[in-house]
């Protein structure tokens, strides 16, 4: 795109698919088993696929959070790639420093100029939408060669299911409890993709572990982007969402099938829906599966449906086709 050519970064070639079938996914496990993530943890699937997509020539930076505390308990580690955790709010800044070091050391001959190594910053929704927002904005704005992955479990799960600015409307959390006056979260999720777009990030995607080929393809493309990229991944959390551990993929799939989560790819500002949903399911099938929405009344669900309908309309208009169809009751 001509417009994007004026700015930092360059999207990779998105005409070819690397991962057409599950057989194209590398067998090598760079995230070792034996970590302490919960049964059915969405993030475990996300990170396993992330490392399969990017391979060994990577440095992982991780914000404080669920995955960090469950994979790096000394003297063990689940990471078979170089990994650093510094603090909660600064994954993007630490990654910028590493990206700068890679650049400088290559130029100065400390690293061979053809040495392949790229930094990937990872954080949860709290570490991205809230406390890490400033560092993220700085990294994106500077056009640093950093891939950023946000695994979004829609609350502060590590500290005990407190509300974040990624918590969806109506969700129960321990800080938006259901009582006489409050009935769960009453604000809508922050638009992180819109924020990344405002920074003219050349490659932005949203993904969902229920669609692993789509997920891993996007991880690879984000990794091959020159300059910053951002992948926003839905990460169901059985204890936080109050779902049985064997329902992670089912609930993630319903998020997309109801239009509550749309799998997008925005290449140099051009959006498209990568997982089209011609016949949308009503949001209630997604909400009813989860204990965090148990208190919702019919009118609450109707309200969420209305807002999701409007959001779907906006996205369809934006991508220029009816990628997400109308609700079809079964």
């Amino acid at each position: 795109m001509v417009y994007y050519a004026y700015f930092q970064g360059k999207a990779p070639d998105v005409t070819k698919k690397r991962f057409k079938t599950v057989w194209d996914i590398p067998k090598e496990e760079l995230l070792a088993p034996g970590h302490r993530m919960c049964q059915g943890c969405g993030a475990a699937i996300v990170f396993r696929h992330l490392l399969k997509a990017v391979g060994k020539d990577v440095v992982i930076v991780q914000a404080t959070g669920c995955v960090e505390v469950t994979t790096t308990v000394f003297p063990e580690t689940a990471w078979r790639v170089p990994y650093i955790h510094v603090a909660f709010e600064n994954a993007a800044s630490v990654a910028s420093g590493i990206a700068a070091a890679i650049k400088a050391l290559k130029r100065k001959g400390v690293l061979p100029p053809d040495k392949k190594v790229k930094v990937v910053a990872t954080a949860g929704d709290g570490g991205t939408f809230d406390i890490g927002m400033q560092a993220l904005s700085g990294m994106l704005e500077r056009g640093d060669d950093v891939m950023y992955v946000v695994y979004d479990n829609e609350a502060y799960m590590n500290t005990g299911i407190q509300r974040s600015s990624a918590t969806p409307w109506g969700a129960w959390t321990t800080t938006t409890p259901v009582g006489k006056r409050w009935r769960g979260e009453w604000r809508w999720k922050k638009d992180i993709v819109g924020i990344a777009l405002a920074h003219r990030v050349p490659y932005i995607a949203t993904a969902n572990p229920a669609y692993p080929l789509d997920l891993i393809e996007k991880f690879r493309r984000a990794f091959e982007t020159e300059g910053p990229s951002l992948v926003h991944v839905l990460s169901p959390c059985p204890p936080g969402w109050r779902i049985p551990p064997d329902k992670t993929i089912e609930v993630a799939k319903l998020a997309t099938l109801t239009g509550m989560w749309v799998n997008l790819e925005i290449v140099e500002g051009q959006p498209r829906v990568t997982v089209k949903v011609p016949k949308r399911k009503p949001v209630k099938v997604y909400l009813k599966m989860q204990g965090r929405f148990r208190h919702l009344r019919d009118e609450d669900i109707a309200f969420i449906q209305k807002v999701v309908d409007a959001e779907v309309e906006r996205i369809n208009k934006w991508v220029g086709e009816e990628a997400i169809g109308p609700v079809v009751e079964e």
């Binding site: 000394f74 580690t77 078979r80 790639v81 170089p82 990994y83 650093i84 955790h85």
Partner: peptide
């Protein structure tokens, strides 16, 4: 020579 820094 991968190592993990900033452990728990």
């Amino acid at each position: 020579k991968p190592i993990t820094m900033g452990v728990v």
